[in-house]
């Protein structure tokens, strides 16, 4: 199995029109691993949902100058990890991000179906990270 433990990063303005750029990057990264076409589509969908949640959160809670989000994709053991990281300012509220995601029922159903694990946590004191984990399929001999 190929290892890409050094993160591939992209930072975008947290605006709806840039989400398709993140989808393209994550699809290219997933192609480097052993995922089939369907799994790559699932990963794109999950990342789209996570970015949408981040954008909605930023526009509700953060001042405009903070409206950036970063996607970091890397491998760890047999997993691909995708972190969607954004900064809302002092007192970043991971609970708010989590609650908002659960309120977006359709988005949450999709996210949980597409990925093996979804976690939301604080990153430092002013950031939020939505971490998506997907197992990398074992290579056939």
């Amino acid at each position: 199995m190929a290892h890409f433990d050094q993160p591939t990063l992209i930072t975008i303005p947290a605006k709806p029109e840039y989400v398709s750029v993140v989808r393209l990057v994550v699809a290219a990264f997933a192609d480097l691993l052993d995922y089939d076409g369907d799994a790559v589509e699932d990963i794109k969908l999950a990342v789209s949902e996570a970015c949408t949640n981040a954008i909605l959160h930023l526009h509700k809670q953060a001042p405009p100058e903070k409206h950036l989000l970063t996607m970091s994709a890397y491998t760890k053991d047999e997993h691909m990890l995708i972190d969607i990281i954004y900064f809302v300012g002092e007192g970043a509220d991971a609970e708010f991000a989590s609650r908002q995601l659960h309120e977006r029922d359709l988005g949450m159903s999709i996210l949980l179906s597409m990925m093996d694990r979804v976690e939301i946590a604080r990153a430092n004191s002013d950031g939020i990270v939505i971490r998506l984990t997907k197992n990398i399929p074992a290579q056939h001999p």
Partner: peptide
């Protein structure tokens, strides 16, 4: 080619 929950929400 692609649709996420934003599209589903509009349909609903």
């Amino acid at each position: 080619e692609f649709m996420d929950s934003s599209g589903l929400g509009v349909l609903v």
